[in-house]
Amino acid sequence: MGSVSKIILQRLGLGLVTLFVVSIVIFTAVNLLPGDFAQSILGQGATKDAVEAIRKDLGLDQPFFARYLDWLSGAVRGDLGTSFAAANFSSFVGSDAGSGLGTVAQTIAPRFENTMFLAGVTAMIAVPLAVFLGVLAALYRETIFDRAANIFTLSSISSPEFFLAYVLILVLAVLNPILPSLSNIFDGMSFSERLERTLLPALTLTLIVTAHMMRMTRAAIINLLASPYIEMARLKGISPMRVIVKHALPNALAPIINVIALNLAYLITGVVVVETVFVYPGIGQLFVDSVKLRDIPVVQACCLIFAGAYILLNLAADIMSILSNPRLRHPK
């Protein structure tokens, strides 16, 4: 087991380093802005003194690297700075800002929870469905079913998220009023009501993610079924069911887990558009709103969270496939 834990530690270290460098990239990018936050907060007409005062207040008079370290150490402690949309443009942001929330962390926390809920619901539907359909398509490859599935998934992957979202709204909310087309979620809602309002955005994401996942699962299984040891199992007279369960599945686990983790990472990008369409109060919508308002601290924080989740999921995929590789689990 020694070598496996060593490899995993290496990957974890690499993930951390990547996250660290990504944080530098994000911070640098934001600092490419002309002028600085103080100017942006107060607008062009502000007096020099007022700008100076705020600069000092926010630590903007410090050199670049000191500010970065300050931001990073804050971020590590969960303090992501002050949202100046919440402070100054409260009328734009909606209900949250009115209640006097000022810090980025406070703005993001409830949104983050909502997004996790949406992603969770999507994953619960998409993962079993995709794996089941993917295995089915691999087993019945080159049949009509497989070809139809290929056309369907390819179309669904190729369509922009908002197209699928509006088609679902059209069918399931407008023409057949089964689900609400807007997902206004608030605290104190019952779980079933919350689920109902999350279902339409979750279905949109499911369509895209399932298609991706199913294609990748199919490819992984077909690749596997071509291996000589599967032919050997067939030539031993093993029943088709047992060939799949006993011989294909243990080896397919690694690629399938990989596929799932990669697609959950893909969900992250997907939520941005889908949350906007359904006005779902998640981190994706917050991000888009902050981009439009140029609320730099929030944009910065959201970016870091998205990138962190992305890196984490890719890392998970990596580690899972190391763990499920018999060559590494049972070294010579």
Partner: peptide, 26 residues
């Protein structure tokens, strides 16, 4: 490239577009 790819592309694009939106008129 590994580092740049660690940031989801749409998110990165939105971040940079925010900055560009300030620079463009100037």
């Amino acid at each position: 490239v590994d580092v740049l790819m660690a940031i989801p592309s749409l998110i990165f694009a939105l971040l940079l577009m925010t900055i560009a939106a300030v620079w463009a008129p100037r």
